[in-house]
Design a protein around this nucleic acid. Structure first.
Lengths: 143, 143
DNA sequence: AATAAAATTAAGTCATGACTAACTTTAGTT
DNA sequence: AACTAAAGTTAGTCATGACTTAATTTTATT
């Protein structure tokens, strides 16, 4: 009964990097630490791992960029977050709780299950989702 | 972003005890070990903890009985399992995957979110669910 | 009494994932 | 050039959860 993907925290870090990069020109370790409320060393170590895994690149200024692979995971996680949150809100869950629960659920879903949940979500919204469009159309460095 | 309830494994053990007690006269540690594929010591230690937490009692024969509190949690977890599995199947997820995912999801839902999911499930089935009835009507020692 | 089955204890391993303390590096300021 | 502040890194620690093996003990069965 192991979680579907290992390193839940990596997904969260990547998701955070994506979110930050969507509303700032550059993303540094310290920004992530501030966002998540973690210490600098925690983030530093996490970034080192993500670098080694080829999920991000870090330039001489400490500016973090998602690689293609990292972006894929970040967008995937963020998409799950949005979809699950919205579905739960549609079911009558309060926005706050929906967001909290989505944070946990998003890491334990099989691709198949998420695909079906997404189908349901899109069906309920006539295939229209500005929120997902924002994610899908986003490209880094296009500020 | 901590899981909603600590000791996910405890919930699984309690759920297993309930399932076993529903189709056997008595439940022993070894039955649980066989069911879950864990070693005897793992189960032994887990049972010790559940005993200390007041979730189960163990008689001189090593027969395990859920306390009121333990039964509450076991039924709650099992109910979540059933509801989530069914909802996912309704969404088009294969039975196998639905069951697998339910195992993970059932441990991370807030009460509020589960309540809304259950509402949805019952609504979709006109309030009729033989599977939930079985759980709700079950009493230990009524074999 | 002998054997087999069940349970327990003790000790160890592993994975995740955070923390503090101390240090280095870099950049901006005076 | 020297200082300071901000950012990043290294190394070591801690906590939790949850499983394992090895060895022993207890219990049951014949």
């Amino acid at each position: 009964m192991k979680a579907y993907e290992t390193h839940e925290s990596s997904e969260n870090y990547l998701e955070s990097i994506l979110m930050l990069s969507m509303d700032q020109k550059v993303v540094r370790s310290i920004d992530i630490a501030n966002m998540l409320g973690f210490s600098k060393p925690s983030v530093s170590v996490a970034m080192k791992r993500l670098r080694e895994e080829g999920m991000i690149t870090v330039d001489d200024n400490g500016y973090i960029t998602l690689t293609e692979e990292g972006m894929k995971i970040a967008k995937g996680t963020y998409e799950k977050h949005i979809v699950i949150t919205n579905v739960l809100v549609d079911l009558g869950v309060s926005a706050y709780t929906a967001g909290q629960d989505a944070c946990r659920i998003e890491h334990v879903l099989s691709p198949e299950t998420f695909a079906r949940i997404k189908d349901y979500y899109l069906k309920c919204h006539d295939g229209v989702s500005p929120e997902l469009d924002v994610i899908n159309n986003y490209e880094q460095n296009s500020h």
